[in-house]
Simulated scan of single mutants.
Amino acid sequence: MISRRLILPAAILLVLSAACAGEKPAAPTAAAGASKVRLGFSAWPGWFPWQVAEEQGLFAKNGIDVELKYFDSYTDSLNALATGNIDANSQTLNDTLASAAGGAKETVVLVNDNSTGNDQIIARDGIKSLADLKGGTVAAEQGTVDHYLLLLALRKAGLTEADVTFQPLPTDAAAAAFVAGRVDAVGVFAPFTTTALKRPGSTTIASSADFPGAIPDHLVVSRDMIGRDAKSVQALVTTWFDTLAWIGQNRQKAMEIMARRAGVSVAEYQTYDKGTTIFTLEQNRAAFADDLPARAEQISDFLLSSKLVDTAPSLEGLLEPRFVQAVQP
């Protein structure tokens, strides 16, 4: 997704003389006896830096043994964390709240980014606004972030989900159905926006840029992991900021790694620039102190009123700022 417009100033240079000579430096190994952490992520530009961290040995540099698991289906990653099949996952705040409403014990420990345009409602030729969508069919992944975006956009336009025919499909299948002409519009996130916009005449009629701060993306860990292995949680958070510093110093190489993981060209990946704002350490600390508590309450109320959840999620233990506070700038 990304040019790092708000990336951390590089504090640590990891370019070794071998790399300057075109050779790949040997990756460091995790400390003997380090516990293995199962970390999930899926197709979103704000989470692809985890691929960089793995390929550049940055987890091991911080003494943590990570089993990085990529999920083709974002929903599967949510379910994996909620059921204890992974220890940590990158996911949105609203999806974390939805899991909490279902009884999952999860905690946000890091803000990866805010979606600032890379979540989109894309419509076929002839539909130029949300009002034009009335009576049409819209596909999105039910109960997840772009379903949420659809409801926000419809509400802003004076409509409800009852004014459209909603077709629940996994995000990749939703994009494919739209391109094939089987639905009138689709709610998708990058890189699936690239797929959807290949339909001739298609256009974006709403995006997360219209709702600043509505879709924050996070590293979320199980409550159990914090209790049994807070040291590894700290290592994950520290590795994230080391990774941003490495990307800032090795942009071209990083772009190649992330574009490859996304399944798009580097040029296509660069188009995701404005749509994702990566949070610096300072922005993380400010978000935990000011914005996130209020944002969590706001999203919780919306999920309940829109019937995306049956009961209000508990916000107790949802946000834990101590790990970003402990990172050395």
Rank of each mutant, 00 (worst) to 15 (best):
A235W: 00
L236V: 04
V237G: 04
T238S: 12
T238N: 08
T238L: 03
T239N: 01
T239A: 02
F241H: 03
F241K: 04
D242N: 12
D242A: 13
T243Y: 01
T243V: 02
T243C: 01
A245P: 06
W246S: 03
W246R: 03
I247A: 01
I247W: 09
I247G: 01
Q249D: 04
N250Y: 05
R251K: 13
R251I: 11
R251E: 14
Q252S: 15
Q252V: 13
K253R: 13
K253L: 12
A254P: 00
M255R: 11
M255A: 12
I257L: 10
I257S: 06
A259Y: 09
A259V: 13
A259W: 09
R261D: 08
A262E: 03
G263V: 07
A267S: 15
A267F: 06
E268Y: 08
Y269I: 08
T271E: 10
T271N: 11
T271I: 11
T271W: 03
T271V: 11
Y272H: 09
Y272T: 00
Y272E: 11
D273H: 14
D273V: 11
K274C: 04
G275C: 10
T277W: 10
T277A: 15
I278V: 14
F279T: 03
T280S: 15
L281Q: 05
E282V: 14
E282T: 15
Q283F: 06
Q283W: 05
Q283I: 05
N284L: 12
R285G: 03
R285M: 05
A286E: 14
A286W: 07
A286K: 13
A286R: 12
A287F: 08
A289T: 13
A289C: 12
